[in-house]
Nucleic acid binder design. Structure first.
Length: 461
RNA sequence: GUCCCGUUCGUCUAGCCAGGUCUAGGACACCGGGUUUUCAUCCCGGCGACAGGGGUUCAAAUCCCCUACGGGAUGCCA
């Protein structure tokens, strides 16, 4: 994987990295990370950190590259200048270079002619070079002919992408190049260079591009597009494994109906030949769904481990918040919400006495009865249940008693009011377990507070 | 302009290489119903595609050609 550190790590790069990694792991090969920082102007340490931390978050460890080393380093192109000079001199002594306007060009072999190029808008010298074959594991044999000499070293003395890419692949003994389809046309330049060096050409696999949502615009997805950046999903508390799984499914599938797969399954099933040829469009809804599948499957201990920082970040709990109680709360939430993002809003009232109240729900309740009165009745019915007995069966019994005292079979008249009184909403976890987790003090306090507030407000409804 | 790559439900895709088992399967999204006297989950159902045209063949989503559309490259960016 040979990214240029731009300060962004987007879905497309992540997928290229992932496919390289999966292929290396599947075949028992070596996954190399090489930093293509020849464009000195836009390379910063921060940009590199974004890349490396994104890779690590996704669990894509590299066998050779920055911070881990390897036998064929350095792995930053900015540190390989001497190697490039040496390989340039090899081409020079083979008569395959020439200088023009201070830049050094690669000389194609073939008959020369001049032609007006409408793209460049001027007369240029072209070459009838033999077409080269790009042996691509996804697309088969692609035949393409270069028709213009191209720059190897710029007039400022720096080497160009095409040149360093080939020299590095060659000196790092790269056997497989898995990269985006935007390089497919460039690959003919690369094959020309490999041939000029008398070196074997690596096996290519050019991945289809990930396109923008057509509603948003045309062309390939870029860092500016919504949902394009990996850090965004990390910040929104998506699970790394889920993001990785969702990204893998963009243009690849295991050949059966499996979608949610653990990493071992993916490694086992991964196959370049199964990669899609056509471009894909990224669908955040699908990522959300896969993330939910992962979330649901988590043991509650693990769920608590990933959820704790989400709640801490919002100031809902402190670091010292008791683990058992946290797990009891989360046990109720896990099956109800589809993303960690929703958790703080969904569960705030478990941790704080002040929380938002849905006034529309309150109005509806007020229309159906005297909410203050109903809440007071619940409080009275609950009061005899002791702290130690404060469990779902005991609460259920108390409610049944309340109902029969009013000549009703079921306590459903009181439920919605009580739910609202303790949580400020009409939706949430199963009612009785929620009361059990909230605890007696909290429930009675909130019922009382609710009754008083609504009595003062004159809420007869 | 030229060259290269691509095109199956709204989206991701299976099927295509080795033509018949495809009235084209799955997933997401959406819609409807059920479960839950909350909401969500869950369950059931529905909607919905072979880009178009020619050819080869007894038979084409699958093979060939053309067109259209999409994308990429064409830079002293990567």
């Amino acid at each position: 994987f040979a990214p240029s550190p731009t300060g962004f790590f987007h879905i497309g790069s992540a997928r290229t990295a992932l496919f390289n990694w999966l292929y290396a792991r599947h075949t028992g090969g070596t996954f190399i990370l090489r930093i293509e920082d020849t464009d000195a102007g836009r390379n910063t340490q921060e940009a590199l950190d974004v890349l490396l931390s994104g890779m690590r978050w996704l669990g894509l460890d590299w066998d050779e590259g920055p911070e881990v080393g390897g036998d064929f380093g350095p792995y930053f192109q900015s540190q390989r200048y001497d190697i490039y000079r040496e390989y340039l001199s090899r081409l020079a002594s083979a008569g395959r270079t020439y200088e023009l306007d201070g830049a050094i060009y690669f000389r194609l072999e073939g008959e020369r002619y001049t032609e007006f190029d409408s793209y460049l808008g001027k007369e240029v010298e072209k070459v009838r070079a033999e077409p080269v074959i790009i042996d691509d594991a996804i697309r088969g044999q692609v035949t393409r002919a270069e028709d213009r000499d191209f720059v190897l070293f710029r007039s400022d003395g720096s080497p160009t992408f095409h040149f360093v890419n080939v020299v590095d692949d060659l000196t790092m003994r790269v056997s497989h190049v898995i990269r985006g389809e935007d390089h497919l046309s460039n690959a003919s330049k690369h094959v020309e260079l490999f041939k000029a060096f008398g070196a074997p050409v690596p096996r290519f696999a050019h991945l289809p591009l990930i396109l923008k949502d057509p509603k948003v615009g045309k062309g390939k997805m870029s860092k500016r597009d919504k949902g394009a950046l990996i850090d965004e999903y990390r910040d929104r508390h998506f699970l790394a494994a889920a993001v990785r799984n969702a990204v893998a499914l963009l243009g690849w599938n295991p050949g059966d109906d499996r979608e949610v797969m653990d990493i071992g399954e993916m490694i086992e099933a991964f196959d370049i030949a199964a990669i899609q040829k056509g471009a894909a469009r990224f669908d955040e809804a699908k990522m959300h769904h896969i993330n939910f599948q992962y979330l649901k499957a988590l043991p509650v201990e693990t769920y608590a481990w990933v959820a704790r920082p989400v709640l801490t970040e919002k100031g809902l709990i402190g670091d010292a918040f008791e683990e058992d109680q946290l797990q009891r709360v989360l046990g109720l939430c896990q099956e109800k919400i589809t993303s960690l993002e929703e958790l703080p809003t969904f569960a705030a009232y478990f941790f704080q006495d002040t929380y938002a109240e849905d006034s529309a729900v309150l109005q509806k309740l007020q229309k159906r009865g005297n909410v203050s009165q109903l809440a007071r009745e619940v409080a009275v019915a609950m009061a005899p249940v002791t702290d130690t007995e404060w469990t779902v069966p005991a609460l259920e019994a108390a409610f049944t008693q309340l109902a029969s005292a009013h000549g009703e079979e079921k306590p459903f008249r009181w439920w919605p009011v009580a739910r609202f009184a303790v949580s400020g909403t009409s939706s949430g976890p199963d009612f009785l377990p929620m009361l059990a987790v909230l605890g007696k003090d909290c429930v009675l306090r909130r019922l009382q507070r609710f009754a008083e507030r609504n009595a003062l407000a004159g809420g007869e409804g």
